[in-house]
Design a protein around this nucleic acid. Sequence first.
DNA 1: TTGATTTTATGATCTGCATCATGAAATTAA
DNA 2: TTAATTTCATGATGCAGATCATAAAATCAA
Lengths: 228, 228
Amino acid sequence: MKKDKHDCDLQTCMLCRLCIKEWLPAVDNHRKNFSLKKGQLLFREGEPVTGIYFIFSGTVKVHKHWGEEKELIVRFARKGDIVGHRGVGAEMVYPVSATALEPVTLCFIDLEFFQASLKVNHTLLHELMMFYARELQESEKNMRNLVHMPVKGRIAHALLTLRDKFGNTEDGAIDMTLGRQDLASFTGTTYETAFRIMSELIQENVIAVSGKSIAVLNAEKLQELEKL
Amino acid sequence: MKKDKHDCDLQTCMLCRLCIKEWLPAVDNHRKNFSLKKGQLLFREGEPVTGIYFIFSGTVKVHKHWGEEKELIVRFARKGDIVGHRGVGAEMVYPVSATALEPVTLCFIDLEFFQASLKVNHTLLHELMMFYARELQESEKNMRNLVHMPVKGRIAHALLTLRDKFGNTEDGAIDMTLGRQDLASFTGTTYETAFRIMSELIQENVIAVSGKSIAVLNAEKLQELEKL
DNA sequence: TTGATTTTATGATCTGCATCATGAAATTAA
DNA sequence: TTAATTTCATGATGCAGATCATAAAATCAA
């Protein structure tokens, strides 16, 4: 993890955006900027929590492990997103790992200072609470989908979610590249099944794939798949 | 939903426990006590959020629906627990339903007043945030379990969780009665499978069942099942 | 108290998806 | 540039758990 002091602009993340003017210099003082290469681990499930991170550029996957081989991707985080807040709670151990999917620059805030910020800044505290609330809703929705929705529907849902979060490039592809394995881990299935379903969707002209970039051609169809 | 004004003791729920003395009369003023019979619906998924509830006695299941027939139980709430907070967020619609599993008495606080309380009482706000954080951890753990753990493991985990939350009666049974169907919905499986696994566990002398009450005889064995 | 509904119980079958196996293509390392 | 490692691609096989079918008990309604 390369250290660096002049990366973030003090206005991308929620901590800075919601910051009280007087507190900003303190933030500036406490932050530590880092960069990660593709595939590098930010923190690992089970490690003690030292602080939280804000992403300044790049994409990170947040994932839970099962045994050595298997995982479930719980969330993707991008520019401006907070990472590591799942460690806040009773245990003070990260319940997830975070890994860079591409080169990433980010900002580290140690826990103590972050908690001080929450104490000082009630808007921040409230905003963070709402963020947790939204993530909880999301998580439980995904949970239900995992139980009752067939894989095809989950992949449809995942694609729509990703398009929503990352937007489209000019040529209509989702502005994010993720491998089949990650798509599988995100939808709670295996690589092979994910692959087969993607092939089906291509055949049905619902999506178009070239390399790792995926374009949604027929969002309505995906929405249908989401409900049955 | 029978209305009643003299149920809760103003010290069971988090709102009251963390309340600033001066604010307590306001709470007393805004609360509305209700009671539900077994099986009665407290609120339904999709309904607009009007406020939040605190349980004074009894047990409530919080569940998400899929189609007409299927559901997933996301949480059980008991004395002192908050219910309805999942509605707080962007949408202002309950993302879940809540149903009484036995006679329940509870306390309703309208949303506006609750939010005012959060504004006034930062301890409460902080505590609520931590609560969301813990629920999120829980939810994502369950999510991973749904994907990677076989049903038997999930049932083992569910039994341990329930024992933890509800404790034991004198005769060693989990202090809560839930039907097989609810156990199935809680572990994300079907009634039949839940039943079969329970039979296995009984045969293996890991649990004992009489009617709707379940006793854990061998917690270690359940813990083993949890990890593979 | 009796008929109706819900819950419990259990076997027989069916299937979506995981697993296994194998090779080609694409990255990455060296 | 070449060897090593990942990722992509696809068919063959197997199984955990869903679905279907039935009936007895228990609970509830009237």
